[in-house]
């Protein structure tokens, strides 16, 4: 079995003007495609090639740097494309909104906290909203690490992730990472995040 680059549910230009078509195309085909190919090459002929990605990530400290970096890159980008979409933005609703308000005080306070985690991640990495023992938590990881990995500072089930590698925004925003983060809120598909939250509750 080998991992497949998942189909995007929208066109490269669907997140314009917040994420430009050129960035989407390179990010998806070259970066995500690269992680997928490199992951497959790293696990080919090993027992890992029989496992789902989540199982590989959970014991990542036992595997090579190539599996950690590319396995993380594969999973993280899968999630990233899923939680964005055209006509995105606005606010979550239902159970997820209740949980956000309970944990962070308000949706705005959550946004500030998540944006700050994304802005202050030095170097390459990701900001996350995760479920940890049933409650919500915001933090960030370096490079392609993620909260499913046993090496992560905080472990849990990710329901929202923001890529703050420079390749995610440099063509459009250059050094202005805060502007990219601010615009990310306009492309979040909250329905997809809510579905992940419900899965995490089970």
């Amino acid at each position: 079995m080998s991992f497949q680059l998942p189909k995007l549910n929208y066109d490269y230009n669907a997140l314009e003007p917040y994420i430009d078509a050129t960035t989407m195309e390179i990010h998806y085909t070259k970066h995500h495609g690269g992680y997928t190919n490199n992951l497959n090459a790293a696990i080919e002929g090993t027992s890992l090639s029989e496992l789902p990605i989540e199982e590989i990530l959970k014991d990542i400290s036992k595997h090579s740097a190539a599996v950690r970096n590319n396995g993380g890159g594969f999973y993280n980008h899968n999630l990233f494309w899923e939680i964005m979409g055209p006509n995105g933005g606005g606010m979550p609703s239902g159970e997820l909104l209740k949980a956000i308000e309970k944990t962070f005080g308000s949706f705005q306070e959550f946004k500030d906290k998540f944006s700050n985690a994304a802005a202050t991640r030095f170097g390459s990495g990701w900001a996350w909203l995760i479920m940890q023992n049933g409650s919500l938590k915001v933090f960030s990881t370096p490079n392609q690490d993620n909260p499913l990995m046993d090496v992560a500072e905080q472990k849990g089930f990710p329901i929202l992730g923001l890529d703050v590698w420079e390749h995610a925004y440099y063509l459009k925003y250059q050094n202005r990472r805060p502007e990219y983060i601010n615009n990310f809120w306009n492309v979040i598909n909250w329905k997809a995040v809510e579905e992940k939250y419900m899965i995490g509750l089970k």
Partner: peptide
């Protein structure tokens, strides 16, 4: 990436 992304992606 900021060292080369505009020129080489």
């Amino acid at each position: 990436e900021h060292a080369y992304y505009l020129d080489y992606q």
